[in-house]
């Protein structure tokens, strides 16, 4: 173990840890602690995701560790329904749902990889993506809108997803709003047409209120 702390890694460029021939004293201890922390980090990751490498490595930058985004502009995948994730990846791969980033990426995945990714993210613990600045009046408007539009029929009474609709609770406000507007404008289509019909009825202000309300909900565990 001591030898490992001394011979820490390889020289790989911009950020590379180098082969430090002689490290002594406090520096050796720091190196040992760092290597232990790094080992634990990768051990956790590999236990959770699988033997390296896995396709999840590629998802993390935009969807967060374990699919839990902390940026309201990027959707969380954690705790999302597997059937929804699978359908979306297939829609991206086939060019039926549009995203310059996601379409080519999804097209590189096999059906098995898509199924396995969907199941992986579905079993991750969901959290609230980001905390929108509190606005009780807006939340109340959003809550009333959700009730009036019957959102829970598809998305579940706690908005954690239902038989036909994905989890919305705790998704990022900016992401939710962008998708509501995309459905409204028809740049995103729902095969059943339900979301396009519903979003088509929303004024920009109502869409804003809905997104704010849903983003502020805690993500219930299943």
């Amino acid at each position: 173990m001591m030898k490992r702390a001394l011979l820490i890694g390889v020289a790989v460029g911009v950020t590379g840890l180098v082969l430090a021939a002689v490290i002594a004293g406090p520096q050796m201890l720091a190196g040992y602690r760092f290597m232990s922390a790094l080992d634990s980090h990768y051990a956790r990751y590999d236990a959770d995701v699988g033997t390296w490498p896995q396709p999840q490595d590629t998802c993390n930058a935009c969807h967060g560790a374990s699919g839990q985004s902390q940026n309201e502009q990027y959707p969380s995948l954690a705790g999302q329904q597997a059937s929804y994730l699978q359908a979306q990846l297939q829609a991206f791969a086939q060019g039926k749902r549009h995203s310059a980033q996601m379409e080519p990426l999804a097209a590189t995945l096999s059906d098995d990889q898509i199924a396995s990714l969907a199941q992986y993210f579905a079993r991750q613990t969901p959290l609230r993506t980001d905390t929108p600045a509190a606005d009780e009046r807006l939340s109340a408007e959003g809550q009333a809108s959700a009730a009036a539009r019957g959102c829970s029929a598809c998305h579940g009474s706690d908005f954690m997803g239902g038989a036909t609709g994905p989890r919305l609770a705790g998704q990022g406000q900016a992401y939710l709003l962008s998708q509501l507007l995309a459905f409204k404008q028809g740049t995103r289509t729902d095969p059943s047409g339900a979301m396009n019909a519903t979003a088509g009825l929303l004024s920009p202000a109502e869409a804003q209120a809905l997104a704010h309300y849903l983003a502020g909900l805690a993500a219930a565990s299943r």
């Binding site: 820490i8 020289a11 590379g16 180098v18 720091a30 190196g31 602690r33 760092f34 980090h41």
Partner: peptide, 13 residues
């Protein structure tokens, strides 16, 4: 990594 911090001079790489 976590709370651990380690520094190293790469010039001897």
């Amino acid at each position: 990594a976590g709370d651990a911090r380690y520094e190293e001079d790469l010039s001897a790489a």
